[in-house]
């Protein structure tokens, strides 16, 4: 008998995360291919309101898994509650987003079933028997198949379109039955890193981003000058902020900020998956890179293959002239 396909929903302050709806699209695709049913789970101390939001999105059942110990995420809490749900409901596929929650919980959940997980997938075929993911910074893709069930999967953000509102699924409240003393991680708090400047990349219209290939904090100045000429914000790939050339709030990508400006200029950024996930929805993308094979060119609208130390200052000058400041 075909089993259930369970989407593990993430919420932020009671609101369902946009990327959880991308998982529902995949769950519905798998349900169609396998003859199974698409379901979802919202875990929390008060999950019903969020579960109700998901119920109108083409899933048959949304399990509102309720327990005081699920008030905040812990790996042990999530894994114990989902393990019980999988056993009780006959779940064949468990879908997480590849997020700090997903990559923390999914491999543990697969491991308690004696299996590895299928991490950061971007596509599926053959009714969930074959999955595709990227490797080597996006230079290669590989297919994988897993022996055994349940298949616990994490899905790259943006790999599937979010599902539209449709249908009228049922919300079912279930008790997680957790033993609080068995949960080894204790949630303390969620903190925000103090912002060092006035940077709001998420709502910026123009972002000029630079990568490690700029070589130093001083040379990164050409990126700042172009951003200033355009009246935009400065973004960066992770190595730049790790090296301390810019505060972490400038980091664009899966572990930083997801941005959607009208114009995104990427200079000297090769386009590791972690970066592309954070910027590919930008309105218009200009990529400047000396390597014509750089993956960033695949998502760019305009590609310049050349030396950023020549192109970027020339572009800054041309922008200033076009704006009448030259």
């Amino acid at each position: 008998m075909a089993g259930k396909i369970l989407t593990v929903v993430e919420t932020d302050a009671g609101r369902v995360r946009d990327y959880s709806y991308e998982l529902v699209t995949l769950a519905r695709e798998l349900a169609q291919a396998t003859g199974g049913t698409a379901c979802a789970a919202v875990l929390g101390d008060d999950p019903v309101a969020a579960a109700t939001q998901v119920a109108g999105h083409g899933v048959e059942t949304v399990y509102a898994v309720k327990d005081p110990a699920l008030a905040a995420y812990t790996a042990d809490g999530w894994v114990a509650a989902l393990k019980k749900l999988i056993a009780d409901e006959g779940v064949e596929f468990v879908l997480f987003s590849h997020t700090p929650l997903g990559w923390d919980a999914a491999p543990r959940l697969s491991a308690v079933h004696g299996l590895p997980a299928l991490t950061e997938v971007v596509a599926v075929e053959d009714g969930g028997k074959v999955w595709t993911r990227l490797m080597f910074n996006g230079k290669f893709q590989v297919k994988m198949s897993l022996e055994g069930t349940p298949a616990v999967v994490t899905v790259q953000k943006g790999a599937f379109a979010p599902c539209e509102e449709q249908g009228d699924g049922a919300v079912r409240e279930v008790a997680a039955g957790l033993e609080p003393t068995a949960l080894r991680q204790k949630y303390v708090e969620t903190t925000s890193e103090p912002a060092e400047g006035k940077v709001d990349l998420a709502s910026a219209d123009i972002i000029v981003a630079g990568g490690r290939s700029l070589g130093s904090m001083e040379k990164f100045g050409i990126i700042k000058e172009l951003a200033d000429a355009l009246g935009g914000q400065v973004g960066a790939s992770r190595p730049v902020t790790d090296a301390g050339w810019l505060p972490h709030e400038h980091q664009v990508g899966s572990s930083g900020i997801t941005v959607k400006p009208k114009l995104y200029i990427a200079s000297g950024i090769s386009g590791a998956i972690q970066h592309i996930v954070g910027m590919k929805q930008s309105g218009y993308i200009v990529a400047i890179n000396k390597d014509k094979e750089a993956p960033i060119f695949e998502v760019a609208d305009v590609c310049v293959i050349g030396d950023q130390f020549e192109i970027v200052p020339a572009l800054t000058k041309a922008i200033l002239e076009a704006r009448g400041h030259g």
Binding site: T190, T191, E193, H248
Partner: peptide, 10 residues
Amino acid sequence: EADRREVVDL
């Protein structure tokens, strides 16, 4: 994501 941290005791 977005420069937040989750603090947990183990």
